[in-house]
């Protein structure tokens, strides 16, 4: 499921991020906010009365705002589904070797 389609208030995990759908500096900022594969994430608010608006999401203990376009590049799965696939904790996935080559690029 894409982050922008995630129901509000349902905790999820980041599965995959399509870094090609944003500029390198935007990708960097997103990683600096802690948005990376395995991170826990939750969609809090949808703005945008006039279309193209922003969404607010919780990542870790932080609330961040991004455009819906960027949110749609973030593939997430909800808690239940995630734990079924890969065990219960974030650590399980974050210990996986080199989550994404783009991270270190």
């Amino acid at each position: 499921m894409r982050l922008d389609k995630l129901p509000q208030g349902r905790p999820a995990y980041v599965d995959r991020i399509d870094w090609t759908r944003m500029s390198p500096s935007e990708g960097q900022r997103l990683r600096e906010f802690g948005v990376c594969e395995g991170a826990s994430i939750e969609l809090l608010h949808r703005g945008g009365l006039f279309g193209g608006g922003a969404v607010a999401a919780r990542v870790g203990r932080m609330t961040i705002a991004m455009r819906a376009g960027h949110a749609s590049a973030i593939e997430v799965s909800t808690e239940a589904a995630a734990s079924a696939v890969r065990g219960t904790s974030v650590q399980a996935s974050s210990q996986a070797p080199s989550p994404d080559s783009a991270l270190t690029a």
Binding site: E26, A65, M66, R67, G69
Partner: peptide, 9 residues
Amino acid sequence: GGFLMELPK
């Protein structure tokens, strides 16, 4: 630019 910003408490 896009829009990426932290929303403080």
